[in-house]
Design a protein around this nucleic acid. Structure first.
Lengths: 214, 214
DNA sequence: TATTAATATATCTAACTGATATATAGAAGC
DNA sequence: GCTTCTATATATCAGTTAGATATATTAATA
């Protein structure tokens, strides 16, 4: 009954930017979208076949010097119109699966030290993530200030070096969307770290009772 | 190769609290875990059959007055030990699927007004959620202050009315875990709302150029 | 008396994840 | 010159999950 096909629409959205191979698409998603979305190979290639079958994209072979041949997919007008239609539609509620919280919840009848251990693992995970995100954030911020392309995005963004009024705006817009979606990730990680602090201090408050509650 | 079975472990975790029917489990997850976890009927009942087959839980029929008969599942020692083993293991990275962010990212080469519209939808969704969460938060906070059971949890928590030292602690602990996991949700919703403000102000800054950047 | 809501269990298709298989090309190490 | 490692590139499968829907029964409402 064609219930979702989010993978299809995600691919169409990326192809609406520029033609890409399956591998390109996977890398694009990993670098640009991993803070809030993911797609697996298991979905990607069947979806590409489906898109071609349904006339939403076309496939052609390309052999660039020194590389092995690859399939380049290009969006069709039909594909573009389906992408636009989806964009305009309602937005589905986001879904999360947070195993740390699940364990914390389910472990609550066991020892407090078990609960604390779970939160500490969670906090450590999020701290490493935070360090990574802040590094990227700095790079983007500098790039936006100096109108320069960070190397990591060199393969993803078509950067106009001749800064006409129009090109400069396009450059800025592309950087901006990477920056803003990363900021979304940063704010979430910080929320999680704040929660860990809050939870740890409450749990400590519970084990050492009669303390004045923070 | 039995790669995951998170549904199985979630069910075992809940059964480690008390025996329940499939329907009870579903409701428990919806009320208590929905901020960070979900399970569907499609997994739940086959999983319950699997648990019984593998000797991790037992099933018995119960007919309470005026209600239709139901199957009550009880965890076995084997089930409990598998649950404990999983709790002690490493915690998987959390996964998110945020369609709002996906659309925002993919729409970035279209008009700014399209992007703004997507963020506004997202913000409105999160605002309603925020209102709901704050209501619950207030209820829990009051419950914790007055050592009282909020009605919504009456079916989920076994509340000891005779407040021996030990029972009072159990009461508090159970409230605390509901409160803290809700707080996790609240902090996340607030992070999303903060992001919407940040994103909207940056997008407005871009469309009305020459403004002094905030 | 009819309809709706809540309780309770079950099933199916479509979608998705993660692991793994396969192959080519360039780089690194020895 | 040979092996090994990494990056590029595509593909597939088994296990897992989501979401819709079917089906009864009892209680509440109109």
């Amino acid at each position: 009954m064609a219930r979702k096909k989010k993978t299809w629409l995600t691919i169409l959205g990326l192809l609406s930017w520029k033609p890409m191979s399956g591998y390109d698409i996977k890398k694009y998603i990993e670098i640009g979208l991993s803070h809030f979305w993911s797609e697996s190979y298991g979905q990607l290639f069947p979806a590409l076949n489906g898109l071609v079958d349904q006339g939403l994209a076309t496939r052609r072979q390309a052999v660039s010097a020194g590389k092995r041949k690859k399939n380049i997919y290009t969006i069709t007008p039909l594909g573009r119109s389906q992408f636009i239609a989806w964009l305009g539609g309602p937005i589905e509620q986001l879904s999360v699966r947070n195993e740390a919280l699940l364990k914390f919840f389910l472990a609550s009848k066991l020892s407090t030290s078990q609960s604390i251990h779970i939160i500490e693992q969670y906090r450590d995970q999020q701290r490493s993530l935070h360090a990574l995100y802040l590094e990227s954030e700095l790079i983007y911020r500098r790039a936006l200030e100096n109108d320069e392309l960070p190397e990591e995005l060199a393969s993803l963004i078509e950067w106009h070096k001749t800064p006409t009024q129009r090109d400069a705006k396009s450059n800025r817009q592309q950087l901006e969307v990477f920056y803003l979606t990363l900021r979304h990730g940063v704010l979430h990680v910080e929320a999680r770290l704040a929660w860990c602090d809050e939870a740890l201090s409450r749990l400590n408050g519970m084990s050492t009772r009669k303390e004045h509650g923070k």
